[in-house]
């Protein structure tokens, strides 16, 4: 079973890396790029009976380790058997 977990900065947290990437888009001549936010994508391979069993485990993992709840949000994007 493979899960994708997306971790992003909360909207009110400054993201200087995203800002720098956004500025680079402009200087490369790409117009209309309004904002870029940088996050992390985790590919987690795990053994679990089914999606219902995997989800709480992944949520706990994301809460405890993969994200810092003070500054980041997470989303379990997909779970594939």
């Amino acid at each position: 079973m493979k899960a994708l977990i997306h971790v992003t900065l909360k909207p009110d947290v400054l993201d200087p890396q995203g800002k720098a990437i956004g500025a680079a888009c402009g200087s490369l001549g790409y117009e209309g790029i309004r904002d870029v936010r940088q996050g992390k994508l985790f590919e987690v391979e795990l053994d679990a009976a089914d999606e219902a069993a995997a989800r709480p485990l992944l949520a706990e993992l994301a809460d405890k380790l993969l994200s810092n709840p003070v500054i980041e949000d997470y989303e379990i994007v997909s779970i594939e058997v």
């Binding site: 947290v13 400054l14 200087p16 890396q17 720098a20 810092n68 003070v70 500054i71």
Partner: peptide, 17 residues
């Protein structure tokens, strides 16, 4: 200490990188 919850808040990448 922040990550451990002993102090509030978090430390992020410097404003100017």
């Amino acid at each position: 200490l922040c990550e451990s919850g002993l102090l509030p808040g978090a430390l992020r990448r410097n404003r100017d990188l």
